[in-house]
Nucleic acid binder design. Structure first.
Lengths: 351, 351
DNA sequence: TTGTAAGCGTTATCAC
DNA sequence: GTGATAACGCTTACAA
């Protein structure tokens, strides 16, 4: 724990106080702070001792000013779901823990027509080194262009490659969804419903493609009546459930493009007295807290979101993170999601 | 939208550029930025025009340095649940939107024995004006003392008054829980189970007191067998459910100290074929996303968490938020939680 | 390897 | 009301 001394005058000690105490120039102290190589072990030790003794902590604002750059990175999100944001954030913080960086979190309202302007104001004011864009706003090309324009680095997180590897961390949604659906097929399901995410979302499109891919491989096609639109909200799951489950020939399994809609669909099944998974198998996507809180627990797809946070930081500011940062594995920046089996999937009735 | 000019040299325009363009001294520009009263409307207008024209944005680091204070406030949390953190954060951002403040978010690990040291390092490095502590870490007195010690303002969020009104935003957990339980009693429930939160959490104690209070008012007492320990986790709800629902005389209703445990308990009810709410009423606490995602939707208690975020910011930095900040209502800083009725409560069997 | 001087973009002081 | 000048705490030249 740092010493409690406040330096002369009872204030925070400054680099000058350290320099005076150590009997060196402030530049030498600065060198120690910034880990310059050209220093005698002896002077370094003397300075470090003085720093310790005074409890000196460099003023980040002063450093930022002198460096003509601050040490902030920003996380921009539109609250896709709270757990995702927080897990990602945790990953970022893991990555920057031993650096001088600090994290600014900024919710943005993608519905607002002032969104771009708001972000611009934010970036101009804070001037972070870089920004990390979480889906769905990561899919907004204008936002990326804005960052570019302002000289703010950026990384976009997505369900698929939506930018080059330097600017994009992505998962393999399509493949994993296909895998999940193949599991359903292996169980013997043939009438499989699909609840889609919102129009215009890349993630929604990816998941649909994965779904259709798996079906096609099995020589099947998605019947129009088994297709339900949606918007990633619980109520959309309800509506989809009401449509799908009152069909004269209802599906024996449904893939929902996220957990929340899966929960909605499941509640409809419950109210109709349809047994899950006995009479209806359900798969979700996200592995949100909801997935384990509903009954039966939902089979779903898990994004390696914390890992993506780490990777995003490493991609955004490798030069601030020390040597370990680049040795982080696959340079393509595609991280694998995994299918999580729980209790909401079983063989269809009569198999 | 701000102009795109980068000033002379292609860089960000500075106060000097503005001064030159407006034909005034930089100090005058500074006065305009800081809304000094002593200015001719004419000069002010001239400066504002120059600012607009150059797209000038004051450098916050330089301001921070000159002011000897930065414009950061920090949100410290231990991820009680993601939605809470994000909603609170949103409230804070609502409150500081038109100010110069920025928000730093910092997860802390209350389990770690280095927790205090970590927070100290963070506060010393960033030197925020103030810190907002979310439960459960808000209950840690050492943390508050640390802030005090470092000259960092603080506000603690809690389920009950855990500090004086200047340092505490609280809700009335006890009362609302009592109200919810009175509702159960009015339905005719007499055997009401209780699932507690973790030992050492003030919120858990408050909720228990509210529960017992309502029972006592009705001349009832909590039977030992109807009391289940817990820790706010889903699995604790499972365990409580297994204990409570296999009693020879099981409860007809259970109050769970949070939604997550309520979800666990509900899943046990489902697996045992116990109908909710027909045979078992359940009440949770938090109004988390889970509450609406499970089936049947959970009656629960909602914290005015976003409002608390607003209030917390207003209490922490009223001097940075303009005149509206203090007119925010009840000076005691106690905000009311509300009981949210959904589908998990009904009359006990046979009534 | 270390020190000196100048400057980063802003505000405070104190004259005018 | 407004402006010169000196801070603020640090880094980057460049010199020694």
């Amino acid at each position: 724990m740092a010493a409690q001394n406040k330096g002369p005058g009872g204030k925070q000690p400054t680099i000058n106080d350290v320099a005076a105490l150590a009997g060196v120039s402030k530049k030498t102290v600065s060198r120690v702070i910034n880990r310059s190589e050209f220093l005698t072990d002896k002077t370094r030790a003397a300075v470090e001792k003085a720093i310790e003794q005074l409890g000196f902590v460099p003023n980040p604002q002063a450093r930022a000013l002198a460096f003509r750059r601050n040490f902030l990175i920003a996380l921009l999100h539109d609250n896709p779901n709270a757990q995702t944001v927080l897990n990602f954030q945790r990953g970022v913080l893991d990555a920057i823990k031993d650096s001088d960086l600090a994290l600014l979190v900024r919710p943005v309202d993608r519905g607002s027509d002032k969104m771009l302007e708001d972000v611009r104001t934010f970036l101009e004011k804070q001037r972070p080194i870089g920004a990390m864009l979480l889906p769905p706003i990561s899919e907004n090309d204008d936002l990326a262009a804005l960052c570019e324009d302002l000289g703010v680095r950026y990384v976009r997180i997505g369900s698929a490659r939506i930018d080059d590897a330097k600017h994009c961390i992505s998962s393999n949604d399509r493949e994993v969804v296909a895998e999940a659906v193949r599991g359903l097929l292996a169980f013997g399901h043939r009438r499989i419903g699909f609840v889609r995410g919102p129009v215009g979302f890349r993630s929604a499109a990816e998941r649909e493609e994965g779904f259709r891919e798996a079906l096609a491989q099995a020589g099947l096609e998605l019947a129009a009546e088994l297709y339900a639109p949606g918007n990633y909200r619980y109520t959309a799951g309800i509506e989809a459930g009401e449509a799908l489950l009152s069909l004269s020939a209802p599906p024996t399994a449904v893939f929902c493009s996220n957990d929340e809609m899966a929960a909605g669909l499941m509640s409809v099944a419950h109210s109709k007295g349809i047994k899950v998974p006995g009479e209806l198998s359900i798969i979700g996507f996200d592995d949100s807290p909801t997935a384990t809180h509903i009954w039966p627990a939902l089979s779903t797809v898990r994004w390696p979101i914390r890992e993506m946070g780490i990777r995003a930081a490493q991609t955004l500011v490798p030069d601030f993170l020390g040597p370990g940062a680049k040795a982080a594995g696959d340079e393509s920046n595609v991280l694998a999601s995994t299918f999580v089996e729980r209790q909401s999937v079983a063989a269809p009735p009569g198999r």
